[in-house]
Design a protein around this nucleic acid. Sequence first.
DNA 1: CGCCGAGTTGAACTGAATCAAGAAACGTGG
DNA 2: CCACGTTTCTTGATTCAGTTCAACTCGGCG
Lengths: 188, 188
Amino acid sequence: MGHIKAYYEGITPVDESDWQYIVRLFEWVSFAKGDILTAQGSIEQFLYFIETGIVRYFICQDTIEKTFDFGFEKTFAGAYDSMVLRTPCGYQLGALTDVTAWRISYDNLQQMYQHTKIGNAVGRKLSETLYVAKSKRELALLNLTAKERYLSLFSERPEIIRRIPQKYVASYIGITPQALSRIRREIC
Amino acid sequence: MGHIKAYYEGITPVDESDWQYIVRLFEWVSFAKGDILTAQGSIEQFLYFIETGIVRYFICQDTIEKTFDFGFEKTFAGAYDSMVLRTPCGYQLGALTDVTAWRISYDNLQQMYQHTKIGNAVGRKLSETLYVAKSKRELALLNLTAKERYLSLFSERPEIIRRIPQKYVASYIGITPQALSRIRREIC
DNA sequence: CGCCGAGTTGAACTGAATCAAGAAACGTGG
DNA sequence: CCACGTTTCTTGATTCAGTTCAACTCGGCG
């Protein structure tokens, strides 16, 4: 769990007693490519810290599937809105590759918030980080054209373009794979 | 500042010593309709708790203006992403009506986080609330048609439709005023 | 009364979706 | 290691939602 500790220490100093308490709250899990971590309609029970692999956030409606976010190694992932509100999740979380992760249950997370000195501080930081990302995305979706959104991925989140199949990237920027294919032809 | 106290008590119990400390950190401000609270390109210095009135979040590019959010009475408002990251704000915050508010500076907010027992808990809750709102909005922008987004405003945030001029509502759901006008004709 | 901004309506245009088919890449088993 | 089937990507033709430009109506206000 060294990566989690490093992550927390990037936010606030972590003393040994807090850390000993926190270590017990996480469990190790692994998923095969394609596995569902969180089903649509369920209430998210876990917050994941991805050690290896990539997860994908997507919605299924009728036969079509829309991908709207990804979670990479050494970051926290999960249907945090469902987890916070305790309401059914409007989307799914799936393993895009084989995935290994540490995860903490909702109840244990509340324990961490209540019983450690750093709990609320790291929880606040996590929420802020998630908020800032969505905030930036909102502006991109409202103000940029599809081509501009694709180009901005190069500067903002190049790992998405490098590591993710095009059909999911297309979905992420809010267009069809066909439209993305045409945009790429124009650019290159 | 009773409304702020009530807001915090909805999150976690507030003891008297914390409250005495917090009270000193806020200041009272008022704005006339049309005033700019936060300029595009500046770094947000304040978090506002709106007592009366409505604020509007918008982007100016060339001659056109795009509105993407509103802040109502008894809620916190401000360019929180700019405030958190200490980076120039990509949008503006303006008074849609006359506005009165309590505001807390970035530095004072950090004081509150460090020196009160409830600081990080209420900060976490605020961030979570903001995150959940943006998260819901992301799904709406990606998955719903303009008409569906307009209809969902009726159920989700009816006060926007009741109290906000149509041209801003149009912008909020990501279309032109003309397109919204046509959608309304279809519905009614 | 006349002006001005907000809202409506019409017509032409456009970016992206959809439908459909072919080409390339990928993985799996023989 | 190759052959086959499956999935992904590309390309073309058509359609459609929403934009743009422009004209007109309405209501409030100096």
